[in-house]
Structure formats: structure tokens, C-alpha cells
Design a protein around this nucleic acid. Structure first.
Lengths: 231, 231
DNA sequence: CGCTTGCTTGAAGACAGTCAAACTCTGTGG
DNA sequence: CCACAGAGTTTGACTGTCTTCAAGCAAGCG
């Protein structure tokens, strides 16, 4: 099972102190408490970020209030890089799930960061590309798989992304950040109710552990089975 | 075959002849007839491409045969850049819709192309980033909007991507490449039947024109209305 | 002219969304 | 320390949209 460590902090490894200085020049740091909003959909995209600590969620809302969680941001990942795409506004909102710390660049530093060193360029492109790849996989799932499988796939993906930070508890593997059923619904393209039904069923089957605002995978293999053995 | 046409590819604008030479070194050209497969899902990802002429579709297939058209590749776009993401295999298949011509790089040239000039880097990152953005929008649509809206949005997106190459016919605006209802279904996450019903209805309403394997937008504003642009 | 490919249409059934309500934790304040 | 508020979750009944199954039609090509 690939623990795709998208650690872009790793990208800064092997760089000369000077290069690192170039990259970090002009940055500041932001601290966020759970529920804090870093930027909102439609805000002027004048900054971009790298998450140092914690977990964030990036959401998009439709005109009629429907919500979708686009991604969970893990430590070491760039996010809010709309400025890099010549966008004036952020296409989504960003909210802290837990206490978090992020590095902040002003928009105009993007070019310099990207060009600081070939290895940085390469790694950023790879990171974005991998996101694209993942988005396509999700896209396929959303449209072809049915509700339960989408949830199973989602949980597996979250587990895989969490990598080493997933907690080993007595009941099984627990995701290192809290998620409500509503969150899971917004990520898997379901309603809260459907998700609740699905997960309740899996709890009684022993695939998942019980818990409010948390996800515990009790039987990983069973979950993979439910996801349709591709992953 | 000489590569003298590549000068009008947007990505290479404003580069010195020398930079262009660097980028193009080691490339070859492929010609494809409609239906030709350039690479298949699971093939070793040893090449990446830029489309010079024509239109291609990139598809992903699930284990059980469900298909999704991930994207339509337009002239001037990079595609099949799995090698750039350190992937061993292509995550999807690529098929020519019409007669097409593509530029081919061997996998190991990626680093050199990316680093050839800052403007190239920037433009590649922007292109991939925009794709990611678009994928997220699609993701949201797929999960929140209903079938008819998804189709409307898809058609609008295709029209917008086609840009100047969209044909102005007597009946309205026609997409410059043929698409079956099945294709549209595979792009919008529906069944052929649902799409057929939806489009047939729109034809009688005068929003779309009739035609096999082609899409004609007769009333653009009406289509936007149907897509849910209430702003 | 017949066959393949693309498209349309009808009917039935299922999955998941909506509406509605009750239950259970958790933290807070009296 | 208990009651209460509120968020989070579960569950049931009903409904609607889309899929599935099934059939037939239309157009292009050899």
C-alpha cells in the first residue's frame, strides 16, 4: 500500500542554505485554531501557503449551498496556490481542522520559489500533477461507483495519505484528525444520512470502530474488499 | 518531418531559438488516424506528448468495464505526462478522435524541458494547475448537480475550451470534433440513455441542433440557463 | 442492399436523496 | 454535580431521479 508522502518539505532537502533562504525570504507564519478560516472562496488570491503542522480542509460551495470537501491538506503540502495559476480569487475556502501552522508567501514570490532550484520545480510540478491524478481517480469513482464503495475508497485514501501519522489504537487504525459524518459525506459525494447508514452497518460488521467525529478502521482488509479491491 | 510548426504553440512563445532547440531536441512526431490508440491504461509510461493538431480523448476504465472520459486534449496542450509524475504506467488510455499530430519526448527529457526556461516552467505548472482546478469543479458538479445540469455544464465547457476552433454553422455553434452520445455520457457521468433523453428534449426546445456524432449549440444563452447560471 | 453503428424511446425497478424525528454524547453553566 | 443546550448521529418512511432492461428506428458504409 503506497504511503504517498507528498512531503514537499522534503523538496527543500539537499538544497544549499542560500537556496533555502531564497525560498523562505518574504515568508511569514500563521497559526490557526480548529474552525479558523484561512481564506474564503472568492477572496483575492494574494498569498500561497505551505502547511507545516496540523490539518486543513479545502471546500467548495455551489451557488445553492451544496458543499464539497475538495481535499484535506497534510503537513508538508503546498495549498492555496491559486496565485500560481494566475487566478484572482481562491476557488475554495480553507478551514483548519485542528491547531495548525502554515508558512505564507505573498503572491509575487511564486515565480522565485518555483525557480529557486531545479529540484524544487520538479517536486512542485510532481505534487500538483499527483493531485491532478488523484482528482481524476476520484472523478471516476464519483461517477461510476456506488455510494458505499465511494465511502470505502475515501477512507482508504485518507488512511493512505495520513501515512505514519495515522494512530494505532486498540480498536484499530485511527485517522489523526477529527471528521464528522457530514465531512465524510461532503468528501464522498453523499448525504449525511447515507453515510451514516453505511458506516453504521460497517460498525456492526466490525469493519469500523465507533466514535463521534473520528474514524477508526478496525479491519483494513475488509474495507479494501468493500472498496472493490482496486485501490 | 520538420518541426517548424511548433513556433505557434503557445507554450513556446517568446523563447529564444536556442531554448526552443533545447526543448525540441530528441523529439519525434506521431500521426494518428481517428480511433488510433496512442497509449493504453497500464502501458509503461516512457514518453510524454504535446498535441500539435487534432483532438484526442483520454479515458480511464474501472475494473468492471465502466468508462470515464477524463479529458479532451486540444492542440497546444501537453498530455500523457505521467512520466513527469514518476509514474511507471499511464493511468488512462489515449485515443485520437480525428486525424492528429503529436510531438513525442522520451521520458528522460522531462527534466530538461521543464528546466529549459523559466517561462516554460511557469506555463507548464499553470497548465497542470488549471487542469486540477477544472477537475475540482467537475468533481463538485458530478456530486452535487443533477444529470441535465451536468450535461449542460459539460457542453459549455467543451465549447469554451474549443475557443476559436468552434465552427460557426447555420444552425449554431458546432464543436470541431465528433462526439457520440456515449462519449458525452462518459464525460458527464451518465448513461447513454439518460443523455439521449436530455439532449433529445433540448433539441425539440431549440437549444441544440440535431446531428449524429456531433454537437451543435443553437441557443447558447438557453444552455447557460439550463446549466444553472443564475447569477 | 444489408449490416453495423449510433440514437431514441418505453417501462419497471433500485438506489440514494429528502423529510421528519428521536437519540446520544460532550461540554458548560447554574 | 446535575441539568441543559447543542452538535453530532441514527433511523424510519417516502419519493424521485436515474439506471437497467428491452426494443426499435435511422443513417452511413461496404
Amino acid at each position: 500500500m503506497p504511503n504517498d508522502q507528498t512531503s514537499d518539505l522534503g523538496a527543500f532537502e539537499g538544497l544549499s542554505p542560500e537556496e533555502v533562504r531564497t525560498i523562505l525570504s518574504g515568508t511569514s507564519t500563521v497559526r490557526l485554531a480548529p474552525g479558523d478560516l484561512l481564506f474564503l472562496q472568492g477572496d483575492p488570491a494574494d498569498r500561497f501557503f505551505l502547511l507545516k503542522q496540523g490539518w486543513l480542509k479545502v471546500t467548495q460551495v455551489t451557488a445553492d449551498g451544496q458543499k464539497l470537501i475538495v481535499r484535506i491538506v497534510h503537513p508538508g503540502e503546498f495549498f492555496g496556490f491559486a496565485p500560481a495559476l494566475q487566478r484572482d480569487e481562491y476557488p475554495g475556502s480553507c478551514e483548519a481542522i485542528v491547531d495548525s501552522v502554515a508558512l505564507v508567501w505573498p503572491r509575487n514570490r511564486w515565480k522565485a520559489v518555483l525557480g529557486a532550484a531545479p529540484s524544487v520545480t520538479l517536486s512542485i510540478v510532481q505534487a500538483i500533477g499527483r493531485k491532478l491524478d488523484e482528482a481524476h481517480v476520484r472523478l471516476r469513482e464519483m461517477t461510476t461507483e456506488e455510494a458505499a464503495r465511494r465511502v470505502a475508497n475515501l477512507l482508504l485514501r485518507l488512511w493512505s495519505e495520513a501515512g505514519e501519522s495515522a494512530l494505532d489504537t486498540d480498536g484499530g487504525i485511527e485517522l489523526p484528525y477529527p471528521l464528522t459524518r457530514q465531512d465524510i459525506a461532503d468528501m464522498s459525494g453523499n448525504t449525511l444520512h447515507t453515510v451514516s447508514r453505511i458506516m453504521a452497518a460497517w460498525e456492526t460488521q466490525g469493519v469500523l470502530g465507533r466514535g463521534r467525529r473520528k474514524v477508526v478502521i478496525a479491519d483494513l482488509d475488509a474495507l479494501k474488499q468493500l472498496a472493490g479491491f482496486d485501490d
